[in-house]
Simulated assay, not measured.
Amino acid sequence: MRQGARLEAGRGLPLFWRVCLVNGAVLTVGTAVLAASPATVSTPVLAREALVLAVGLTVILVANGLLLRALLGPLDRLRRLMEDVDLLRPGQRLPEQGSGPAAELITSFNAMLERLEAERAASSGQALAAQEAERRRVAQELHDEVGQSLTAVLLGLRRVADRAPADLQQEVLLVQETARASLDEVRQVVRRLRPGVLDDLGLVSALTSLVTEHARLTGADVCRRLSPDLPPLGPDAELVVYRVAQEALTNVARHAAAGRVCVDLTPTFAGDAVQLRVVDDGRGPGDSHEGAGIRGMRERAMLVAATLTVGPHQEGGTELRLLVPVPRTEERR
């Protein structure tokens, strides 16, 4: 409502007519000054008269340029912002100063960004909620159907191995180990799809399990500092923190070639936010563009008004920071 009121109140002459009025005013003032001055023009023009005319023309052009710069300068800033704006980095705005068409255009563009960011956050929230629901369904089916079927196969193979001849027992045991490995893989996929420990034991336990699993699978040296005294974030924010940490460790395993990874989860000094920090000693981000994984993390961060930064670490490698604000008491209810 306030944005619309400012736009309605600021509507005036079109930009074309404002430029014409500025040029007309400068030329009128310049003509009046020359007419009131004692300067005269002879035929042919004398050198002294030509100098006076040149000075007068220079003053008129400089005054005209300064006025047009003040009028049209904000348009250049708006163009640069339009070229660089990214809805996954919310909060990019231009200051709404002055009046006139340029100020009106900046106000309209800022209002459009607010609307697009809100719509993007809403649509991303719906898509990610549907994704989590589908993950939960697939995880449940894998656990209930595939997992139970493989468990039954293992029990059957155990009975067969007990009754099989000595020359076949080794082959049956080999098949039994293959089935057991497949069951472990199914359970691992289920944990990735829907971390039950997050629902049952909380965020710190879920991240501990995630970091331990990463160390087991990659062989990397992993350090962690997970504060047990975290302010309450709510289930949505906790899921965002977990998924961002999961994606960050996946990127480290795939791209970083790191030998050491550190994961920190601590409250800020003021206690109004929680910070997740993932640092590796790998090859670093370099000049590569952000991939789908990082953009997916930015979309998740938008859902809880969190701030995500990814860049090179001062000692080499890559550093990821996720700053999640603690919801107010009335928001948690």
Rank of each mutant, 00 (worst) to 15 (best):
V138G: 00
V274H: 02
P38S: 13
V261E: 08
E177L: 12
A122W: 04
G234I: 01
L174K: 15
Q131N: 06
A102P: 03
R180P: 01
L265N: 02
E145G: 01
V222D: 04
R120P: 00
G293H: 04
G196R: 07
L67K: 07
E117H: 02
T212E: 14
A305G: 05
Q246C: 10
Q169F: 07
A118K: 04
D200M: 03
L155N: 09
M302T: 04
V19K: 05
L21R: 14
T40S: 15
L157V: 08
A301V: 01
R18Q: 13
L210P: 02
R120H: 02
H289M: 05
S227D: 14
D162R: 13
G91F: 05
V240L: 07
A270K: 06
Q97H: 13
T218W: 00
C223H: 07
Q170K: 14
A47N: 09
C20Q: 14
R298A: 04
V52Q: 11
E185L: 07
V45G: 06
C20T: 15
L320V: 04
G202H: 00
M297V: 03
L230N: 00
L320Y: 06
R243K: 06
S182L: 08
S182A: 12
Q92G: 05
I106A: 12
R2V: 14
Q140E: 13
L150C: 02
A122Y: 05
G98A: 14
A248D: 11
Q148Y: 04
R298C: 01
D280A: 03
V175E: 13
R135I: 02
A152H: 08
R137W: 06
E171N: 13
G12Q: 12
A305T: 05
H313V: 02
R11A: 15
V29M: 14
Y242D: 05
L57H: 12
L230G: 00
L276K: 03
L88S: 01
G65W: 09
V261H: 07
G56Y: 12
R243D: 12
P267M: 03
A220K: 01
V29R: 12
R69H: 13
V172R: 10
T208R: 10
A102D: 07
V22W: 10
A139C: 03
G156M: 08
V304A: 05
V263S: 06
G291R: 05
L276T: 02
